[in-house]
Amino acid sequence: MKTLKDLNLTAQQLELLNSKLGLRSLFANKNIDLEKTLRDVEYENALREKQAELIKLQAWAIDNDKKIVIIFEGRDAAGKGGAIRRIVAHLNPRYLRIVALNRPTEDEQGQWYFQRYVNKLPKPGKIVFFDRSWYNRAVVEPVNGFCTEEEYKIFMGQVNDFEKMIIQSNTYLLKFYFSITKDEQEKRFDDIRRSKLKRWKMSAVDEKAQDLWDDYTRYKEIMLEETNTEHAPWIIIQANKKTDARLAAIEHILNKIPYKE
């Protein structure tokens, strides 16, 4: 194990380790790991700074009746939900909504596909986060046989115009795709299966994800190519490291939405 002398820390890094957060992280485990502790503290500090900026962004949206839609897509276990939780952690819950829809009901199956999502779009001053979105029909549904080929083609022919209509209704729309490797997905699935607290997250669709990896890849690549428009481009987040992915997503939100204090 490396000592403080071995690490050759800067004065700023030593200050971080001596902070309340640093000391709490340092002694959280029996085996003290200075390098990991420093990484954790630096991440938490960076996260808190960005979360403070998100509060300003939300206040601006409320004061100016702005509507914001942020979509999180990606493979199963890519870290979409965890990123959303960090983003909303200190925001006013009365002015935001997290949407994670189940499979369509019998009534919804007879509606225009986008209708159930239109009903979840934000009112002025509100932010809506989609933990998976209408893009289920671009990847998850065709891979798992939940839609017909005709339904898939209709969706792909309509989605770009649908998003243009959202934006033209004075709404900011951001689309994130969290990208992980096959090995990383398998590792995360194994962690979920071993955890008594997380085991509920594994669905029948998740159980087949590794076997259907190539099918997911094919549909994902078509989706990213055909729906990466000028008015609603995809933002690809490299998500093998969850902490980096979360910070990157927040940074993009702060950069793409022109909020003012």
Rank of each mutant, 00 (worst) to 15 (best):
E184Q: 13
Q115E: 12
E226R: 15
G74W: 01
W134P: 11
I237W: 00
M156V: 02
P104G: 08
F146E: 04
M156D: 00
N144C: 06
A78F: 02
S169V: 00
K241G: 09
A239L: 06
I257Q: 05
I32C: 02
D190S: 14
A209E: 03
K242V: 00
T181E: 06
P93Y: 02
L212E: 06
P142F: 11
K164A: 13
S195I: 09
R116D: 10
K256S: 15
K153E: 15
G22E: 09
N45R: 10
K220M: 10
S169R: 08
A28T: 11
F129R: 01
W112Y: 13
I98Y: 05
R193P: 00
Q158P: 00
N8L: 06
I70W: 03
R246F: 05
E73H: 06
K196W: 11
I87V: 14
A46F: 07
L26Y: 09
K201W: 12
I250E: 08
A78N: 10
V128E: 04
A204T: 13
T243F: 10
R103F: 10
I84C: 09
Y95D: 09
S179C: 06
D244Y: 11
D215W: 07
K196A: 07
Q168T: 12
T171Y: 02
T181V: 03
Q238H: 13
S203N: 11
N160R: 00
E44W: 08
T3R: 12
A52S: 14
V159R: 01
V205F: 15
T181A: 01
V41G: 10
Q158M: 10
R193I: 13
Q109F: 03
G125P: 08
P233N: 07
K126G: 00
M156N: 15
Y259E: 08
V118R: 08
A11I: 11
S203A: 09
N144V: 03
N228S: 13
V143R: 00
N45K: 10
V128R: 10
L91K: 06
L21H: 00
Y259S: 01
K50M: 14
Q58N: 03
R103M: 15
W213R: 05
S169C: 04
K220Q: 14
G157W: 04
A89C: 03
I154P: 01
K196R: 15
I192S: 02
A52F: 06
C147P: 05
V41T: 11
N31H: 09
K198L: 07
Y113H: 12
E15K: 15
T10S: 15
D65N: 14
V159S: 05
A209V: 09
W60P: 01
P142K: 00
K126I: 12
P124G: 04
K80L: 02
D131W: 06
P124K: 02
K182P: 01
K220F: 04
K5Y: 12
S195T: 09
R103P: 06
V140C: 08
N8I: 01
S25P: 00
